[in-house]
Simulated assay, not measured.
Amino acid sequence: MKPEKWVFWFIFIFFLIVTPVYWVMSHEIAGTFVLGFAGLLGGMIAGYLALTARSFDPRPEDRPDAEVVEAAGDVGFFAPSSMWPFWCAVTLAVIALGPALHQAWISIIGIVIGVWACSGWLLQFYRGDYKH
């Protein structure tokens, strides 16, 4: 958790410095609030990671005496080839086409196709009794 914690502390400190500089240079309230809340979000996540990192054993990445072998293992199963990401992309294009053409029925058709495409992608390796 140490690398992740430091990344978010950096985000917090960066926005803590940039927000007042932005206010002084632009006197624009909306951007100042957005930058400030982005910094608060980074601080909140960094604080959460700092608190939760104390409650469990460190990962091999967090220990200086760790060996590379300790972090090895199964990463997961990845599909060698699949047509479902293509159909999900087509679905998103059809859904976005509806507002672009001011035709709601096109988006509705896209949503219906999207249910089919997402179901296919989710269940592409389901054959019978949870086979892969």
Rank of each mutant, 00 (worst) to 15 (best):
I109M: 14
W87Q: 04
C118A: 09
E70I: 02
I29T: 12
A66Y: 09
Q103I: 07
A117W: 04
F10Q: 07
V69Q: 13
L41E: 05
F86M: 09
D62Y: 00
P80Y: 05
A93I: 14
V18H: 00
F125Y: 10
M44T: 10
Q103G: 01
L40P: 01
V7H: 09
T19Y: 07
M83C: 00
F12C: 14
A53C: 06
A30W: 12
D129G: 12
S81W: 10
T19K: 08
C88K: 07
A100W: 13
W116M: 07
A96H: 07
D57E: 15
P64M: 07
G128T: 01
A79N: 12
V21T: 11
W105E: 14
L122Y: 12
V90C: 12
I95E: 04
C88V: 15
S81G: 08
Q103F: 11
L16Y: 00
T32P: 03
Y48K: 03
W23D: 03
K131W: 01
A93Y: 07
L122M: 01
A66Q: 06
E28N: 15
L101S: 13
L92P: 01
P64R: 11
G128Q: 03
V115S: 10
W23H: 09
M44C: 02
P85E: 04
D65P: 02
I45H: 03
D129E: 14
V75A: 13
L101I: 11
D65L: 02
